[in-house]
C-alpha cells in the first residue's frame, strides 16, 4: 500500500512544507502588528511572483503529502486496494491541487 517511492514523496513534501508553514506564520504575525486590511494584503500579493511561487509550492507539496496520508487512512480503515486505491489517491491529490491553485491564483494574479 505504501512503497518506498510514496514514502519518500510524503517525507520530502513534508520537508518542503515545514519552512513554508513557518514563513507563512512569521509573515502573518509580523504583517498584522500595525493592523492590516484585506485590501492591503492583496495589494502586496497580487502580481507578486514571489508570493505565487511561495504559496504555489506549498499547495503542490500539500497535494502530494495529504493525498498519500489519506491513502493510508482509507486503506487501513476501509481496506480499499489496487486500482480503486490508486484512483482515490490521485483524485484527492488533484482535488487539493485544483482548490489550492484556485486560491493561489485568486490572491496572486493581478
Amino acid at each position: 500500500m505504501l512503497n518506498a517511492r510514496l514514502y519518500m514523496a510524503q517525507r520530502l513534501s513534508a520537508m518542503i512544507m515545514i519552512p513554508l508553514v513557518f514563513g507563512h506564520l512569521a509573515v502573518m504575525i509580523y504583517a498584522i502588528q500595525g493592523g492590516l486590511t484585506t485590501a492591503e494584503i492583496l495589494g502586496r500579493t497580487k502580481g507578486s511572483v514571489t508570493w505565487f511561487l511561495f504559496y504555489g509550492t506549498f499547495v503542490a507539496a500539500v497535494s502530494v503529502h495529504a493525498a498519500i496520508g489519506v491513502r493510508v487512512i482509507i486503506h487501513e480503515t476501509f481496506s480499499l486496494k489496487g486500482k480503486w486505491l490508486e484512483a482515490t489517491t490521485w483524485l484527492i491529490g488533484a482535488l487539493l491541487l485544483i482548490m489550492g491553485a484556485r486560491a493561489v491564483l485568486e490572491v496572486t494574479f493581478a
Binding site: 500500500m1 505504501l2 512503497n3 518506498a4 510514496l6 514514502y7 493510508v72
Partner: peptide, 9 residues
C-alpha cells in the same frame, strides 16, 4: 522490504 507491504507502512 520496499514494496507495498514493506517497512514504510
Amino acid at each position: 522490504v520496499s514494496g507495498s507491504g514493506g517497512c514504510h507502512n
